[in-house]
Amino acid sequence: MRNATIQAVIELAEKDKNVFLLTADLGFSVLEDFQKKFPKRFFNVGVAEQNMMGIAAGLALSGKTVFVYSIIPFVTIRCLEQVRNDICYHNLKVRIIGIGSGLSYAHDGYTHYATEDVAVMRSLPNMTIVCPADPLEAKALIKSSEFYNGPIYIRLSKGRDVSIHAKLNSFKIGKGIVLSKGTDATIVASGNILAQAKEVCEHLKNKFSVGLISLPTLKPLDEKLLLQCARKTKALFTIEEHSEIGGLASAVADILSRNNTGVFFKPFALPDAFIKTIADQKELLDRHSLSARALTKRILIVLEKLGKK
């Protein structure tokens, strides 16, 4: 996902000489191509994220499109005031690429987890948040960002790229992608946990008609599509690798409560807690009932109950 994203940034930089890339000393084996191709537009600012965000703002105020790159906590909460005051207030063309969505950095422990980032970034005016599910979505996002004004927070997973889409017909920031339609329930997932959501649908397909939506853009949310699903299906489930506070679940709940759809809604997310168990990402997700197996079980219980009514 990281490589696909940076390749797309390189393609953008080849077209537009105002594209810059900054890193706070991270991105080994990911950023070298850009650096080699555009040495004058690449800066490793050192381990100094506040400064990096200020520099990005100054460059963008001078008409540049600036990509900044680091691990998620370091480009979000570490330098939050710079993101808010310098980038969001001035509504600048800065693209914050954060690596390690959710528990991607499993073995590295809680300092490297990104489990509150969406909640924090969602609250910033002018901020757009996109969490691509696979390399195709990531590439399409970078391409479609070319003429998109204002800051974008790009939330990427780390680790092996899982391809979910065979091909992507259209991608628009702010729009969800319908993978399948269903009448009993809709599952909405954001980010690479979409892979698990897809597996869940496979497991359920013999018993229930379940639709699947990928929702890469977490802000602004595709309200129209969500309301359509809420009105056409009996149940709506969200799946995300983020705290249950302030992420996809909260965003969807906001819309549902404001529109009084009456749909049964159940979110699946990480708990509001620091995770202290050390294990790989798959194991951690399993322990928090976010593996495909656990999710299938939980959704099945709900759907069977609803079916009996």
């Binding site: 800066f43 506040q50 400064n51 990096m52 965000m53 200020g54 520099i55 990005a56 703002a57 100054g58 460059l59 963008a60 105020l61 001078s62 008409g63 540049k64 005031e81 710079q82 005051n85 310098d86 207030y89 001035h90």
Partner: peptide
């Protein structure tokens, strides 16, 4: 040119302007 008020923001932004220049 730029909003300030929280201290310690101006110099990093200035660096960005200077790099662009």
């Amino acid at each position: 040119e730029v909003s300030t008020g929280a201290l310690g923001h101006g110099l990093p932004i200035g660096v960005g302007y200077a790099l662009a220049a």
